[in-house]
Amino acid sequence: MPNCNLSLQIIPNVEDERLYSVVDKVIEYISSCNVRYEVGPMETTMEGELSELLKIVEKSQEICINEGAGRVISIVKIDYKKDGVTIDEKIKKYR
């Protein structure tokens, strides 16, 4: 399966002062997964095979729960096309 882009905005229901530290744990996990990713101010975009990226989303939610979140809201956007899609083709002209 060709690469796709998946953007994940994860919102753990934790105390305000813990929000960034929990999100940081999710980003640390994504970093360990050997997929290309870019952190933005509202979401993290990853590049890879869809099935692998969806597993990352699932584990990211588990991380939030394990960190004490009573609930986790995840907003996922997927860009997929037959021949694959890359982060570079979308943002290269802006860098």
Rank of each mutant, 00 (worst) to 15 (best):
M1W: 02
P2G: 11
N3A: 09
N3M: 09
C4M: 10
N5Q: 15
N5E: 10
L6Q: 06
S7Q: 12
S7I: 04
S7E: 03
P12L: 09
N13G: 06
N13W: 08
N13L: 15
E15T: 10
E15I: 04
E17Q: 13
E17T: 13
L19C: 00
L19Y: 00
V23H: 00
K25E: 15
V26H: 07
I27W: 01
I27H: 05
I27D: 02
E28Q: 14
Y29M: 12
S31R: 15
C33Q: 15
C33G: 05
C33Y: 01
V35E: 02
R36I: 02
Y37T: 00
Y37H: 14
Y37D: 00
V39I: 14
V39L: 15
M42Y: 13
M42N: 06
T44I: 10
S51A: 08
E52M: 07
L53R: 03
Q61L: 04
E62V: 10
E62T: 13
I65S: 04
N66P: 03
E67Y: 11
A69E: 00
G70E: 14
R71S: 13
V72L: 11
V72W: 11
S74V: 12
K77M: 01
I78F: 01
D79F: 09
K81F: 03
K81Q: 15
K82A: 06
V85A: 08
T86V: 09
I87A: 04
E89K: 11
K90M: 05
K90W: 10
I91M: 07
I91P: 08
Y94H: 14
Y94T: 10
R95M: 13
